[in-house]
Amino acid sequence: MADSLRDQLLKSGIVKQVREEQRPKPPQPSRGARPPQGKAKPHASPARRDSSEMDLASAYAIRAQAEASERKRAEQEAAELARIKRERKAKIQKLLEGQVLNKADADHVRHFEYGGKIRRVHVDADQLAALNEGRLGVVQQNGRYLLVGQAIAEQVRAIDPHQLALLVDPQTATDDDGVPDDLMW
């Protein structure tokens, strides 16, 4: 007759025969021990494991530790970026002190695209001509658009190019693109 499945597995070497001595024996209750009360079943001792086998709790602990370290690294990176941004903003603020050319009695409006939207700055006729020629620039600071000279606008561009809202390139300002520079919107 054919060998049993157990015998076939033992012959092929897939399964090793476990000796009686190697099997863990269930713990014997001591004489003074009370039986557990309630409906809970007594806990069996955990099965013996190889050192290379990882249990579920340790895998979760390793995963939680990795996620915590990743969160901490991301928070540190965000804090560093915020610090750099604050330093740049302070440098630009210091650079702009006394250099702003905005006038309260400006009668023209110069529209420009910044941040995907159409923005505007109020200028007089001379400032409008200088702005269109590239001798003046517009810097965005604290939600306002400030008119500054070309040198200051270039310094702002060097510190943080995102804060420079408008600086017309003199080479492209002389090109005839079909749209007059003094066009009012």
Rank of each mutant, 00 (worst) to 15 (best):
G137T: 11
E133N: 12
A151I: 11
E67K: 13
A44R: 10
L147C: 13
P170T: 12
E21P: 06
E75Q: 07
D55T: 08
P36S: 13
V100G: 08
A151D: 13
A153K: 02
I14S: 11
V138M: 06
A125D: 11
T174K: 03
R49K: 11
E87P: 01
H162T: 15
I92R: 06
P170M: 05
E53Y: 02
A68C: 01
E133L: 04
S45K: 06
L147I: 00
A158W: 00
Q17L: 06
N142L: 10
R6Q: 13
P170H: 03
W185Y: 08
G115K: 02
S58F: 02
N102D: 15
K94A: 15
K89F: 10
V139R: 00
K16N: 12
R19I: 03
K72V: 00
L131C: 07
S4L: 02
L101R: 05
Q155H: 06
A104M: 01
M54Q: 09
I152A: 06
S30T: 13
L81T: 03
M184A: 11
A74Q: 15
E97Y: 01
V139W: 00
A61R: 12
I62F: 02
Q93S: 15
S69A: 15
D50F: 01
S4T: 15
A64V: 00
E67T: 05
A165T: 07
R49F: 08
N102C: 11
P29H: 00
R110M: 09
A173C: 04
D50Q: 05
D182H: 10
P27L: 12
A57C: 10
D105V: 00
G13P: 02
D105H: 04
K94N: 12
H43K: 12
G32I: 13
T172H: 03
A44M: 10
I118N: 10
S52L: 10
A78R: 04
P26E: 12
M54K: 05
K89Y: 10
Q171K: 07
D124A: 13
L10K: 02
G134L: 02
P29W: 01
L131S: 06
